[in-house]
Design a protein around this nucleic acid. Structure first.
Length: 560
RNA sequence: GUCCCAGUAGCUCAGCUGGAUAGAGCAACGGACUUCUAAUCCGUAGGCCGGGGGUUCGAAUCCCUCCUGGGACGCCA
């Protein structure tokens, strides 16, 4: 247990429970059912270190004025080691004021847990899968994919740190309609390469990357596929292009700090007969029907407003059909929490997919879809228009090139998934005080600099257990230590809410407290004892900053 | 028309599983480098939390309704 805040909360809750029981036994207070006892950290510092609203919750069942209930509770309250005084305030809050040193309980724990500080076990090893990006392997990664990558990867890291058994997965849409389209586009470019007058289909892929792909195909195979059948030619082109595209996507994502555990091919589901088997299963369960030569899923049975086509009248299964097979596959692999990160343009798909999960005989709550709102790119104060048709858009690769991996990742996760993101390229690129990423990294670099200074002066890091923390009495020292103690709780909240932006905000606040401290006090001072205590304080800060930055995939530089 | 997301300081947004006096960054203004990194700090100013109703001891937070902006509503994915 490294969460000092949680420990004290629990202790206080237990003490309150005893107090309540005692008061009831003495007949001072009467009620049928005890309200839930919770201790919270008040927003206002003046309201103590911890507080409870128990007396107010008690007012109704005990038929008693809340302040009176509070008085009884306080009179029967036996304080633990750290409680200095208890006060009743406002409408009936009970505020607990702790002895100053309690915040320093966290420091030796941070140091001893090191890279593990902040990890919690709310997951208890539960198997969770996070599927994200899953971009069409027919093109380049765009800003939407980039946001999905940053969000999905950070969520996965946070869940892993919170005790879940996490699998990161990329679903490769290498089957269906868009592959037909892809094939036709590739073929057109190939034939153009051979000097023929062919145009890329209207609905095809017009990007320049396709031309480049065809050029490398031409280099390898020359005109040997001119005489082949259309089918052979297209298959060869598609196989070649998919391999090249996937390798490139993988490489770019790795450059963005995103590494997957599983790359799952949609085509493999068709090859294994999984799509057919899934449809057969649904048919047996009576969830499908035929209409207008197509096969439909009766989503309306599960409260969805429209049914959905599984097999088109031309005999080809829809994307939805293979997606159901894919989700069945996920469930069969033992994931009891499946998180999909989807763009807002797919939100209509959510209810249907949940209905499908239910139709398959699983709890639809197993499936959680994080819908992220779209990204608008700004440059020079104006929106940068992205258009697939013209092949003109900013790719993830361009973005990393232009603003750097760390700034890009920070900007994508500093807002909640459900808020529309205006990505200001100029701001992200600026290496100035306008850029919050550097603010956090700078705090880390500054601490590293202190450590270098320490070594240069022949000093060394004191043992965290041997330090007298009571020497840390300055306001900034207390605030910093208090903030460090919050980290495990922040990780738990971020995991529960799938909210990496909480980590970003936390780190920004932590860095801010450090900078304030740094500007008012020196760490390495002639008084050895104070120096030792401060060294542990900043070392604990460094560890926490590094761990937190790791969760959102941002580097913690030692120098800047 | 139906559904989803958003509406909080001049700008971009936190806070939204209900708590006490609503926060941060940027922008504005005034200060701080002979010191372990000034990519920093200190201070000032800035608000009918879109409008209206309701639930509650208590609402930015929950419910209803209206307004505004974005998105989705295909035998595309």
């Amino acid at each position: 247990m490294s969460d000092v805040v949680e420990e004290i909360k629990t202790d206080l809750e237990k003490a309150l429970e005893h107090s309540l029981q005692k008061a009831r036994d003495c007949g001072l207070i009467k009620f049928n059912q005890a309200p839930e006892i919770t201790v919270e950290v008040p927003r206002e510092k003046d309201h103590g270190d911890f507080a409870t609203n128990l007396a107010m919750l008690l007012a109704k069942p005990a038929r008693m004025a809340p302040r009176r209930a509070a008085e009884i509770l306080v009179q029967n309250f036996s304080a633990g080691d750290w409680v200095e005084r208890v006060e009743i305030a406002g409408p009936g809050f009970i505020n607990f004021y702790l002895k100053q040193g309690w915040v320093y309980l966290a420091l030796p724990r941070v140091v001893s847990r090191g890279a593990q500080y902040g990890s919690v076990d709310i997951g208890k090893g539960r198997k969770v899968q996070v599927e994200f990006v899953s971009a069409n392997p027919t093109g380049l990664l765009h800003m939407g994919n980039a946001r999905g990558a940053a969000l999905g990867d950070s969520i996965a890291s946070i869940l892993a740190f919170a005790g879940y058994d996490v699998t990161r997965e990329f679903y490769i849409n290498d089957a269906g309609n868009q592959i037909e389209n892809f094939a036709a586009s590739l073929e057109a470019r190939y034939l153009q390469q051979a000097g023929k007058e062919v145009s890329v289909p209207e609905e095809g892929y017009h990007g320049e990357d396709i031309i480049a792909t065809c050029a490398s195909f031409w280099e390898k195979h020359g005109d040997s596929y001119l005489s082949a059948t259309e089918k052979e030619r297209q298959e060869a082109l598609v196989a070649f292009a998919l391999e090249e595209k996937l390798a490139s996507i993988k490489k770019v994502l790795e450059g963005f700090g995103v590494v997957y555990d599983v790359w799952f091919s949609e085509q493999s589901l068709h090859d294994a007969g999984a799509v057919q088997n899934t449809l057969e299963f649904l048919r047996k369960k009576g969830h499908v029907y035929e209409h207008d030569d197509a096969l439909w899923f009766r989503a309306t049975d599960f409260g969805v407003d429209k049914d959905e086509v599984l097999i088109r009248s031309n005999g080809l299964p829809t994307y939805f059909a293979s997606d159901i097979a894919y989700h069945l596959n996920k469930l069969q692999r033992g994931f009891s929490w499946i998180i999909n990160i989807w763009g807002a343009d797919h939100h209509g798909h959510v209810a249907r997919m949940k209905a499908a999960v239910e139709a398959l005989g699983y709890d639809p709550a197993f499936l959680e879809v994080v819908i992220m709102q779209l990204v608008r790119l700004y440059k020079g104060g104006e929106i940068v228009r992205m258009s697939k048709r013209s092949g003109q858009f900013v790719t993830l690769e361009d973005l990393i090139e232009e603003v750097g991996r760390d700034a890009a990742r920070y900007f994508f996760i500093m807002r909640g998934a459900d808020s529309h993101l205006d990505f200001d390229l100029d701001l992200a690129r600026s290496e100035s005080n306008e850029n919050p990423v550097y603010y956090i990294q700078y705090a880390h670099a500054r601490i590293c600099s202190i450590m270098r200074q320490l070594v240069e002066q022949g000093g060394q890091m004191p043992g965290a257990e041997s330090v007298d923390y009571n020497l840390l009495v300055e306001e900034y020292e207390l605030a910093l230590a208090r903030k460090l103690a919050d980290f495990p709780g922040e990780v738990a909240s971020a995991a529960a809410g799938l909210a990496p932006q909480r980590i970003a905000r936390y780190l920004h606040e932590l860095a801010g407290l450090f900078h304030s401290f740094y500007n008012s006090h020196r760490v390495i001072v002639p008084e050895k004892d104070i120096s030792a205590a401060r060294l542990v304080l900043v070392e604990a800060t460094r560890i926490t900053l590094k761990n937190g930055l790791g969760l959102i995939g941002i580097k913690a530089p030692e120098r800047m």
